[in-house]
Amino acid sequence: MEHRTIGELMPRKVVSVRLDTPFKEIAQTLADNAVSAVPVLDGLGRPAGIVSEADLLRKAADRSDLSGRTPLPHLEAWERARAEGRTAGELMSAPAVCAHPDWTVVEAARLMEVQQVKRLPVVDEA
């Protein structure tokens, strides 16, 4: 049985942000492109991490509820530091776990399971 490759299935138009992209611009990028996450690229255009709706919601959930009706969630120190971030580089999940376009779907799924990630940026040797 031959499995399809990631390169055959991946979207060709990739939306991304830079490390210094501010919170509001990330949220707008997600909404404008109807995606739930974007890769965060370093200065050389390489994936440094992923910022997702969940990362943005963590930041919003860390805000105090002035009414006092909603308790703040318990966050570990590293989660709180990320929640207090203002840019993609501070909010992202890192490092980026990446796949190669020649990998099969099975190989990618195994990596996602082992690394406990929901998204894999697809990169080549360059």
Rank of each mutant, 00 (worst) to 15 (best):
I26A: 06
I26F: 04
I26L: 05
A27E: 12
Q28P: 00
Q28G: 03
T29M: 05
T29Y: 00
L30H: 09
A31C: 04
A31P: 01
D32L: 10
D32F: 01
D32M: 11
D32P: 03
D32G: 09
D32Q: 15
D32A: 12
N33E: 09
A34H: 06
A34R: 13
A34F: 01
V35K: 13
S36D: 11
S36T: 14
A37V: 03
A37S: 12
A37H: 02
V38Q: 08
V38I: 10
V38E: 09
V38N: 01
V38R: 04
P39C: 15
P39G: 13
V40L: 06
V40S: 10
V40I: 07
L41R: 14
L41T: 13
D42R: 10
G43I: 08
G43N: 13
G43Q: 06
L44N: 10
L44K: 11
G45Y: 00
G45R: 08
G45K: 08
R46Q: 14
R46M: 09
P47V: 15
P47S: 15
P47D: 15
A48W: 01
A48C: 09
G49D: 07
G49P: 00
G49Q: 06
I50R: 12
I50M: 14
V51R: 05
V51K: 13
V51W: 04
S52H: 04
E53K: 09
A54M: 07
A54D: 09
D55I: 06
D55W: 02
L56R: 06
L56Q: 07
L56P: 00
L57H: 03
R58V: 01
K59D: 04
K59F: 00
A60W: 00
A61T: 07
D62P: 00
D62R: 05
R63V: 08
R63C: 01
R63N: 03
R63L: 05
R63E: 07
S64I: 01
D65M: 04
D65V: 10
L66I: 14
L66T: 13
L66P: 03
L66F: 02
S67N: 12
G68N: 03
T70L: 02
T70I: 04
L72R: 14
P73D: 12
P73K: 12
P73F: 01
P73R: 14
H74Y: 05
L75W: 00
L75I: 06
L75C: 06
E76A: 13
E76R: 13
A77W: 06
A77T: 14
A77R: 14
W78N: 15
W78I: 15
R80T: 14
R80I: 11
A81Y: 03
A81H: 08
A81W: 04
A81R: 15
R82W: 04
R82G: 06
A83V: 10
A83W: 03
A83C: 09
E84M: 06
E84C: 11
G85Q: 12
R86G: 09
R86D: 11
R86Q: 13
T87E: 07
T87S: 15
T87W: 05
A88K: 07
A88V: 07
